[in-house]
Amino acid sequence: MSFLTIRNLSAELKGHGVPLLRRVSLQVAAGEVRGLVGESGAGKSMIGKAILGILPRAVAITGGEILLDGVDLLQLPPAQRRRRIGASAALIPQDPLTALNPSRRIGGQITDRLVDILGWQRARAEARARELLAEVQIAEPERVLRSYPHELSGGMRQRILIASAFAAEPRLIVADEPTTALDVTVQKQILKLIQAMQARHGTALLFVTHDLGVVSKVCQKLSVLYAGMVVEDTEVRPFFAGPKHAYSAALLAATPKYTDPAASLQPVPEAVIEAVRREVADADRRAGHG
């Protein structure tokens, strides 16, 4: 049984009826990493936000199930739902600068969550914070806990958010483009760290990214999205050997690969876009007719 199971999840822009997610289904088991890939606007972050209950107000879920450990979050009353998410899921956000409060020291920002949401004693939370910073390989945890976000580098801030995500031993983590803002050498360190932490804690990890290079390094499974619809759900090895869907194949051919300049960075052909759009429209029609 997968820890996270999403079945036929649909969402739309309130009042406009614009579909944002189209009957999305996917699963992530404990200890597994699933990549969620697609171009901007494909709905990949939206899925992460739906799971964590942090969708923008303008977005309404119109159908489907989000099961966390077998319990459908969408059927729970709001307060209960928030408690359940808070206790078992966490987010590693994209931009470590906006995710941290600039006017507060790091220490409090890690411990608050443990104290407020999980009801830990402050001393226990502080001990845990020190332990976590050591685990994410921060050399001087005491100094860093007393620092403000602007005093730290981008890589360091991202380490703190990783520590913070793992703080309450969540069983599911959603990582939303966690390395997009970092340069390649730091990106590599951070990805290795996320991987090591995930494996050690046996966490289910949903990894949102637009970079298939990153997927091939971090994930075992992946879902390719187009216009809020999953066009391919597969395992990483067969995918990179030869994607099944024409759109995923085009996306792979567009991905930079310096070892193969002739066969990479190819724009997605118009015909492929038209075909996948038709597919989306057909699926909508079928769903409309019930």
Binding site: T185, Q187, L212, G213, V214, S216, V236, F240, K257
Partner: peptide, 11 residues
């Protein structure tokens, strides 16, 4: 180091 850090789309 820069080259070795680039994640190629290749498992």
């Amino acid at each position: 180091e820069l080259l070795a850090s680039i994640p190629l789309p290749d498992p």
